[in-house]
Design a protein around this nucleic acid. Sequence first.
DNA 1: TTGTAGGCGTTATCAC
DNA 2: GTGATAACGCCTACAA
Lengths: 230, 230
Amino acid sequence: MAYTIKDVAKKANVSIATVSRILNNQVGYTEETKRKVLKAIEELGYQPNAVARGLINKRTHTIGLLVPKLTSTFVTELLRGIEKVAHKAGSNVIVCHTETRGIKMMKYLQMLNEKRIDGLIFTSEVLKEEYYLYVKKMGIPMVLLSTQSDEYPVPYVKVNDRDAAYTATKYLIEKGHKEIGMLCGNKADLIAGIPRIKGFKDALNDHNIPVNENHIIFSDEFFFKMGLKA
Amino acid sequence: MAYTIKDVAKKANVSIATVSRILNNQVGYTEETKRKVLKAIEELGYQPNAVARGLINKRTHTIGLLVPKLTSTFVTELLRGIEKVAHKAGSNVIVCHTETRGIKMMKYLQMLNEKRIDGLIFTSEVLKEEYYLYVKKMGIPMVLLSTQSDEYPVPYVKVNDRDAAYTATKYLIEKGHKEIGMLCGNKADLIAGIPRIKGFKDALNDHNIPVNENHIIFSDEFFFKMGLKA
DNA sequence: TTGTAGGCGTTATCAC
DNA sequence: GTGATAACGCCTACAA
């Protein structure tokens, strides 16, 4: 079994209170006692128990990341970045794949709630009322990534899909291209569909280029293969 | 603040012990009291605190996953599968990117240890003595994924690289091909290099085909781009 | 069937 | 400067 703060205290001939102070570098002890305690910690190979700490501090230094199919390299990059920053800040990230739309989402939120995570990152899916209310009740900060919500006041980080599509299309037009095609997500997709198509068409219209619906190819999945096929 | 078992007990007019029993569906209560308690739980929207539970049960239902650069779609697939199974079993997975070889590894192991994770999956890197000893001291089960260790008795799951390369090469040979090239990892790589090259050469030799070293192209990174370039 | 009380490993508030 | 001691939220003998 792992050593506890009690073992350290005993070995260093001090009270657990003192050990705790040193561990959290607060004030109230001699350099001498500090050395003693540090030595005991070293010799025992003692590691504080984050679970116990979490119980009293009400912080677990853990954040939850809800992502859809992780197959897309885009989401993978997001995870990389998030985990990197979290680690630098002394936190870990629990990854949850909410594949089958909605079904597992509530289950995940529940698990994360029980684990008392410090915050939540919600990626790429539409924030349903049920989710929003639940997280609100959890009382932890949440941020949307690569999505946004018109209905609920939740901070988000994402690219403006309509504008991005507009800019991309405009760029090609200004390069002199006339026949421009578009590969996009599902026609009804609130994120990868509608806004991007709008940007695409807007750009064409603004440059007096007729829109050929056949030049827009839809796909439901964001696998590399799908893009290739399209 | 979230409700505790105490709130439930009070609302249901029972002791916390009874609530606990019902929560963990043990025996020792009437159907009647069970109904009462369940009703109180429902009304309060009570969710047990996994942190407190972890402290006493010594199980956190959390496992750690150490992966190298997650850019590779292979690793991404692994994560997907692992998370899926873990979730089904009621656990969560904390993902850690051990990018800069070794530097961050010990730091991660330490964090995971403090969080008292239940188990560890170690992916794609060589298991150094330092890591092995540390995890052994943690006293939790570990399994190697896509690696193996000759020095330490750690269970592993991986494809046999030498055999796989041999089989692939043999397949091409039997298809009638004579000029076979190979794209592989770093020449000295203990996983993606040496064994696969051996399999490749063995197959050629066994079929009396001369080995042309120029037909083996090495690469250090496993990005898609790198493969393309090669 | 039910409740009381001690303990899990820490932190924090008191005294001394 | 230092040490008891009461929480934190839950589980579990032990009683009743």
